[in-house]
Measured scan of single mutants.
Amino acid sequence: EESVKIVRLVKNKEPLGATIRRDEHSGAVVVARIMRGGAADRSGLVHVGDELREVNGIAVLHKRPDEISQILAQSQGSITLKIIPATQE
Rank of each mutant, 00 (worst) to 15 (best):
R64T: 15
I58T: 11
G44Q: 07
A86Q: 09
V46D: 00
I58C: 10
D23N: 08
D23I: 09
G57R: 02
I34F: 03
V29P: 14
E51Q: 10
R22G: 04
K82I: 01
V55A: 04
L81F: 07
D41P: 00
G44L: 00
P85M: 02
L16T: 04
K11R: 11
G38E: 05
L81Y: 00
I71Q: 09
A59Q: 13
G17D: 04
G44D: 06
K82H: 08
H62C: 07
E54Y: 03
G37P: 01
P85V: 04
R53F: 06
R53Q: 10
S69R: 13
H25E: 13
E51M: 06
P65K: 08
K5H: 10
R36E: 14
D23C: 09
L9R: 03
A39S: 07
V60W: 01
L52I: 15
Q70T: 13
G57C: 00
G49Q: 02
K5Q: 08
A32E: 14
Q88D: 12
N12V: 09
I83H: 03
D41Y: 09
I79D: 04
A39I: 13
P85K: 11
T19Q: 12
I58V: 14
D23P: 01
G44R: 07
K5A: 04
G77S: 10
N56M: 01
V48N: 04
R64C: 11
V60E: 02
V60Y: 00
L72A: 06
R42W: 02
V31R: 01
I71D: 06
G44P: 01
I83F: 08
L81D: 04
K63W: 06
I83C: 05
T19A: 09
N56A: 03
R64F: 06
K82F: 00
G37W: 03
K11A: 15
P65D: 15
S75P: 09
I68L: 07
T87K: 15
A59F: 05
L72M: 12
D41I: 03
V10D: 14
A40I: 14
I34G: 01
H47C: 07
S75T: 13
E89I: 11
I34W: 00
A28L: 05
G27I: 00
V29T: 10
L16W: 14
M35D: 15
L61W: 14
M35I: 13
I6R: 12
N12S: 12
D41F: 08
L72F: 13
K82Y: 00
L72T: 05
T19V: 15
I84Y: 07
V10E: 10
L9K: 05
G38V: 00
Q88Y: 10
